[in-house]
């Protein structure tokens, strides 16, 4: 197990390192001139040269990478070109906003979708199962912003039940803050529900069909006891691991949702950085989202290992 853990940690770091490579080369090594991209095609050549010097983009690429990575590991992402402020200063509050939205969505979707998956598995082949599975997966392929438009139209404009902006005015109560967050969170919930429910359903069905479930039933346990003590115990182990990896997806979904609801999170920041070719900010935002993903999958693997005796203890017979 120690070996496995060590290998897993090393892999996580390797992934992060490769990620920095991808991010760096995407913003530096691709054809074109960084400063030119920033300043636009009609910029003064002297200005372009000047900016390239300031950014260090006139030096050889490997040298640039070393300088850049040395700063990055110290969490020094440089200055944002667009805001002319240190990147970290912009990043920190945005990260906080996004975390709140993402966690809210997560807290909503996990219990609902796991319950949906279990119900579908229990009613396998019946109408309710088909409904949950087909509707869930169909909902998952509709982009978040489309859900957003529909929600805003119905609950914001027609019914006036929910406020449209994602961010409550300063000084609002906690309740009001989450009321503002509800529609953005629901967009993410719709997209995530089908996926988690499907994984849960598959896990539960596999456990129901397993020989050990038959053993349990033939011991004389009630079906309730069989489900709780034997089926769910085995079915939810892989589910939990998969759910954790979905944290990574959320970051992608946040971009469109934050843009639609004008919510000042990491997604908006990243989008603005793309539009304004603000490379230092863009690199930082992408790296942060990648790190969150790597940490989330690592945590998922760890959880899976803790819950699965086969990995926790090697075969010793």
């Amino acid at each position: 197990m120690k070996r496995f853990l060590l290998r897993r940690v090393l892999l996580a770091f390797l992934t992060l390192w490769l990620l920095t490579g991808v991010v760096f080369f995407a913003s530096h090594a691709l054809p074109g001139n960084v400063a030119q991209k920033v300043l636009g095609p009609f910029a003064d050549p002297e200005g372009v040269k000047q900016l390239n010097h300031e950014l260090g983009t006139d030096r050889p690429i490997p040298q640039q990478y070393v300088t850049w990575i040395a700063k990055t590991v110290r969490l020094d992402f440089g200055r944002s070109l667009n805001y002319d402020r240190p990147v970290t200063e912009k990043l920190r509050p945005a990260l906080g906003y996004s975390a709140r939205l993402a966690l809210f969505a997560f807290v909503l979707v996990v219990p609902i979708s796991i319950a949906g998956g279990i119900i579908a598995a229990m009613k396998r082949g019946r109408f309710l199962d088909r409904f949950i599975t087909v509707a869930g997966l169909s909902a998952a392929v509709v982009p978040e912003f489309v859900w957003g438009v529909l929600l805003v139209l119905v609950f914001g404009v027609k019914l006036h039940w929910l406020p449209v902006p994602g961010l409550a005015p300063p000084g609002s109560s906690v309740f009001s803050q989450y009321k503002h967050l509800l529609m953005p969170a629901l967009c993410l919930v719709f997209v995530l529900f089908g996926y988690i429910a499907r994984i849960t359903r598959a896990g539960v069905i596999e456990a129901i069909d397993a020989d050990y479930t038959r053993t349990a039933a033939l011991k004389g346990l009630t079906s309730g006891q069989v489900v709780v003590r034997h089926v769910l115990r085995n079915a939810l182990v892989p589910t939990i691991a998969v759910v954790a990896t979905q944290l990574g997806y959320l970051l992608g979904g946040l971009i469109a949702v934050e843009y639609l609801f004008n919510y000042p999170g990491l997604g908006q920041l990243l989008l603005n950085a793309v539009k304004k070719r603000d490379f230092p900010l863009l690199q930082a935002a992408v790296l942060v989202s990648g790190t969150v993903y790597v940490v989330a999958t690592f945590a998922a693997d760890l959880l899976y290992m803790v819950l699965n005796p086969r990995l926790r203890q090697g075969a010793t017979s």
């Binding site: 397993a210 020989d211 050990y212 038959r214 053993t215 349990a216 039933a217 033939l218 011991k219 004389g220 346990l221 009630t222 034997h230 115990r233 085995n234 182990v237 819950l307 699965n308 005796p309 086969r310």
Partner: peptide, 22 residues
Amino acid sequence: RELRKNAISMVYQNPIGALNPT
């Protein structure tokens, strides 16, 4: 259930699969 509890039992092929892995 009462019968299965104490009157009829069954053993089948693939014993490792017949035991709950967790």
